[in-house]
Computed example of a mutant assay.
Amino acid sequence: MLERVLGRPVRPRGAFRYIDLGSGFGVTSSLVAALYPGSEVVQLDLNPAHAAGMRKFNTAAGVDNAQVLERDLASLKTGELGEFDYIVCQGLLSWIGDEVREAVLSFIADSLKPHGVAYFSYLTPRMDVKLIAFRETLYRSFCSASGPSVVRLEAALEECWQMLHDRRWPGLSRHDAFEMLSHFTTRSPNYILHEFLNDHWSPISPDWLQRRLKTKGFGSLWRHEAGGAESGYCVELFVRGKLDELSRRQAKKYTHLLECEPGKRLVLHTFPQEPALLATASREGVVYLAEGFDPAESTAHLERYNRAIIDSKLSDERSFRPLAIHGCGQGLRLTPVQQEVLRALATDRGSSEPLDNRLRRRGLSAVESRRVASSSVPFVGSPEFSALAFLSERIPLGIG
């Protein structure tokens, strides 16, 4: 996010302390710990299943610089955990009660170092009214069901499909209700339970957040509110201190960028020097690759981290955890199909066997056409394959 503020990609220099409040399964914070083994990462979540999941993954991935705390945010005492360079509140403020929200803001005010950065993502009142109407109906059905959360969710979705069939969905046209119900039926139960069925679900005003943090000595550094289907989702950076201190954390010069927007193929570009192209690159779905990459540099810790993902038998692990890229301080989320192509490239590096033959042996094909989603054979187009071939030298897997 900081490259949007400073006009160029940046990465931390030296050791730093990073805390992920309400970290869930630690998707981002475990990656940070793997990419920066000299850093100290704290992953804090109240949910026992989340804490256990983080500990299990960190152990398998060899992430030993991350501390998992199963704690209530409201129980944190001033100075208890020390000061941090980065404090992350990803998907937190809009899903907790007022008392806990105030405790979080007080913790940040007490714990962020001078010139540190606080990251927030939250819901605003500008959410699509159709999405709000959908959520209200699904939430009522969920609350009226009984049993464990996942069972109640299944019952609520079944009841909503019946309401759609009976043409009695309140506040939405049948078409809109069908579109949203079809979309959310494909999402993971954990996502729906957290994102829409949390009892404390409450959009908050960006102006309110700015006023509250201003009283604690913070200024808003950058804010982005999504539009379209994602309208109402806001990402914001707050800083305590001067911007020029952050700019001193600039990384090596970057030579390539990779477009990797969700649902689209990977496309590799030489890093643009023109200001207009750089502005285009500074958006979601871009990974920056630095020059000075040394293939001989030790990558054992990244190999173990990436293998914990790519060898996982759990499809969720392979779908939502980003792989660590050597030499750029970033990660990249690849689909299971893309991961298999990467595995094939790493395994057969230096092989004289034709590429198509190598991929076919693994049930994959490199073709000029776009991926055909309905086919029984997963297709990977040439531009996408070229990007994966480039990445095969930079995503350590420890195989081949």
Rank of each mutant, 00 (worst) to 15 (best):
K253A: 14
T280Y: 09
Y233W: 13
T270G: 12
E303P: 00
A290D: 04
T335N: 01
E245M: 11
S247G: 11
S282I: 04
E259L: 06
A344V: 15
L314T: 08
K253G: 15
Q330E: 07
P272G: 10
G217S: 01
Q339G: 07
W222L: 14
K242A: 10
G327Y: 10
R249A: 11
A276K: 13
F238V: 00
L268Q: 13
L289H: 00
A308I: 08
L277I: 00
L332Q: 04
F293T: 05
S220T: 06
P295K: 13
K264H: 11
K214Y: 08
D311T: 09
L277Q: 15
V287F: 01
Q338P: 01
L314H: 14
L302T: 00
G241Q: 08
D316A: 10
V235H: 14
D348Y: 15
P275Q: 13
L314K: 12
R318N: 05
A324V: 14
K214N: 10
V337P: 01
T299Y: 04
A276M: 05
P322T: 11
P336L: 07
G232Y: 12
G329Y: 06
L246K: 05
P275W: 06
L221I: 08
R343Q: 09
L332V: 02
N306K: 08
P322Y: 08
W208V: 04
F218V: 08
R343Y: 01
R349K: 15
Q250I: 11
Q338F: 03
W222D: 13
A281V: 06
P322R: 10
G329F: 14
N306I: 00
L246M: 06
K216E: 01
R318E: 03
K214D: 09
E225C: 07
F320L: 12
A300L: 05
E340R: 15
P354D: 05
S298I: 05
Q250F: 09
A344E: 02
R211V: 03
G228E: 02
T270W: 07
G219H: 12
L266D: 01
E274Y: 12
T215A: 14
F320E: 08
L323K: 03
N306Y: 03
T299C: 12
L209T: 01
H269K: 15
A279V: 07
F218N: 02
R249H: 13
G232E: 03
R212D: 04
S312D: 06
L334Y: 00
R248V: 03
I310L: 09
D294H: 14
L323P: 00
P354A: 02
G219T: 06
D294P: 12
L334A: 02
E230N: 15
H326D: 15
S351P: 13
F218G: 03
A324L: 09
K264N: 10
K252A: 14
Q273M: 10
A324P: 15
Q330S: 08
I310C: 10
L258I: 04
R307G: 06
R349D: 11
C328L: 07
F320V: 05
K242P: 02
A290N: 08
Y288I: 02
R240K: 15
R212A: 11
V235S: 04
W222M: 11
D244V: 09
T347K: 14
A276F: 09
